[in-house]
Amino acid sequence: MADYLFEIELKVRDYECDLQGIVNNAIYQSYLEHARHEYLATKSVSFKELTDKGILLMVSRIEMDFKRSLTSGDRFAVKLRTERQGLKLVFYQDIYRLSDNALCLKAKVDVIGQINGKLNRGDIFDTLNF
């Protein structure tokens, strides 16, 4: 079992579902991004403040493995942990349906940093205390 650093609970909204009644696959990226932003907020990291300083944190790659579908009204948790890998900060994120604790999605999200238009060597993540 992973040692998660952060967890947020959310609920599927009707408009996030496709004609089959399941969450559209693109919506899962929004869930993952929302969880990352909320996690960063717990670290007192504001994307607006970083951008104002010329610091951009950007997703460079996302891998998502769909395990089970979420449907309208499902409550679920997005859990994450991080790992530094060279220039990247990697977010390992899992989505669990709360009613049965079923794993619905496993994701790996690579994030890079750019400062004043130049790729950062990764030390920005140490500075921000991730």
Rank of each mutant, 00 (worst) to 15 (best):
Y15T: 06
D14M: 09
K43T: 05
Y31T: 05
R36G: 03
A41F: 13
Y28T: 04
Y39G: 04
T51V: 13
V45G: 02
K48N: 15
D18N: 15
E16L: 04
V12L: 04
V45W: 05
V12A: 00
I55C: 08
A41W: 10
R13M: 05
D14Y: 15
E49L: 13
C17H: 03
F47M: 14
V45E: 05
S30E: 07
K43R: 13
Q20Y: 14
A41D: 05
A41V: 08
S46L: 09
N25W: 09
L56V: 10
Y15C: 02
E33W: 06
Y28E: 00
V23A: 01
V23G: 01
S30N: 11
Q29L: 14
G54R: 07
Y28S: 03
N24Y: 12
S44I: 06
K43N: 04
S44G: 07
L32M: 02
I22E: 00
I22R: 01
T42S: 07
L32F: 08
K43I: 11
F47N: 07
Q20C: 03
E38R: 09
L50E: 11
R36I: 04
T42C: 05
S46Y: 11
E33I: 09
T51C: 09
S44F: 13
I27V: 15
L40Y: 12
E33V: 09
S46H: 11
H37G: 00
A26D: 06
S30K: 09
T51Q: 13
F47L: 13
